[in-house]
Structure formats: C-alpha cells, structure tokens
Computed example of a mutant assay.
Amino acid sequence: MGTVVDFRSGRSAPGAIAGEGLTHVELTWVEKKIEYWIRFGSVTREKVLDRRRRIVSFRPGDIFAFVRWAANDSDTIISRVDIVRAVAEGEAHQTLPFVRPGGDILLTAQGWPKVERVLRTIDGIEQLGIDPGAVSPDHWRHVHNRMTVGQAPRTYTLDLHRAYLVRRRVQP
C-alpha cells in the first residue's frame, strides 16, 4: 500500500492511503463551528478518524458535491460548495483543501446566497429522479459559468440528461 498523508500539511499522519487511485475527502463536523459534508456522490469507502472526522473516498470519474461551512463566535468564516469529478492517478487536476489528490473542479460557489442557489439546483435535479452525480459535467460547468456572471443557469431536464447518456455511449 502507500503512505498515509495528512490532508492539511502533506506529512505522514492518520488518513487516506496515497497511491491507491481514489480521491479522498476529509470531512469534519463540529456542530455550528465546522461543518464539512458531501451533498451527493457515491462514496466508495469511508474511514472514521474520530467522532468528528472521517475520510470518504471516490473512484475516478465519480462526481460529488463537497460543502464547507465554518463560523467563529460572531460570524460565518466560510460558506462554499464545490462540485468535483474525481480524477485517475496521474491525470491533470486542480488542488482543493481537504481533497487529495484534488480533482476536476466543475463548479465552485462561495458565500451563502450562491451556495444556497447551487443546493436548490441540486434539489431540482433530484426532483426529476436524476442522481446529481450522473449529471453531465458540462452542465455543472454551465451552472458555474452562469452564476459567475450573475445570470440564471439553464434548468437541467430529462431530455438534456437522456442526450448526455446517449452521447456518452457513442463517444469512445
């Protein structure tokens, strides 16, 4: 197996096994202080580090939403959602805190109003009976780009999803 890597420093520590081809996400939950969670995605493996921290792992190609929220005694420090495609070993990727080795970041939103819009978009897709992790990566990029310029993204529909699935089958 590989070396165990600390997610913040990169030094050896309890955590995910490097070199096994999975993308690992460190989740923390300290009620009303630090709340990092997965909104959607097919977790391949889960490792509990302690009562507040765990590591979830995703296979290459899996798409997941990673939500981070943290506050101090008087205000929110961070409110962010990232929709990420897990990458294969050696594949180009962007780095992201608490995600190793990183991933293909399809969408990122910061600030609670934008995060809430993304969460509502995810809810709308689920209401269609579609797993958000099975949605076209291009759609998540579209949502990101439209939100970045302050415009409403196109609604994901069953027809768009069917077209994506057909395109995926015929492309090598």
Rank of each mutant, 00 (worst) to 15 (best):
Q94E: 15
G61N: 08
L128Q: 07
R100D: 03
V67K: 12
T76A: 14
V135T: 14
R100W: 00
E91K: 01
V84I: 15
T76I: 13
T108S: 14
F66Y: 15
G90P: 04
V115G: 03
A92W: 11
A92L: 14
I105C: 03
I83H: 11
I125Q: 08
E89F: 06
D75V: 00
D138I: 06
R85F: 08
I125V: 15
R117K: 11
P97G: 06
T121D: 07
H93Y: 11
A134Y: 12
R141Q: 15
R117L: 07
I83L: 06
G103A: 02
V135Y: 14
H139F: 15
R68M: 11
D75C: 00
S79W: 11
G133W: 08
I122R: 02
I122N: 02
S79G: 14
W69I: 11
G90S: 05
F66K: 08
R80K: 15
L96W: 01
D82Q: 13
R141N: 13
I130C: 06
V84A: 13
I83S: 13
S136G: 09
T121P: 00
R80F: 08
F66T: 05
T76M: 09
V99W: 04
A86M: 04
I63W: 08
E126A: 13
H142M: 14
D75G: 00
F98R: 07
E116C: 04
V81R: 11
G124L: 05
I125A: 09
F98L: 13
R141M: 12
P132A: 06
I130Y: 09
Q127V: 08
R120D: 15
R141D: 11
A109G: 03
E91I: 01
E126W: 05
F64H: 10
L119E: 14
R85Y: 06
A86F: 04
K114R: 14
K114M: 10
Q127M: 12
T121C: 08
D123A: 12
S136T: 05
D82W: 09
T95I: 06
D75R: 00
V135C: 14
L96D: 04
W69G: 13
G61L: 10
W69K: 12
G61Q: 08
L107Q: 01
G102H: 03
D62T: 07
A134G: 11
I125K: 02
L96C: 05
N72W: 03
S74Q: 07
R80V: 06
V81L: 09
L128M: 10
P132F: 10
S136W: 10
G103S: 04
I77L: 15
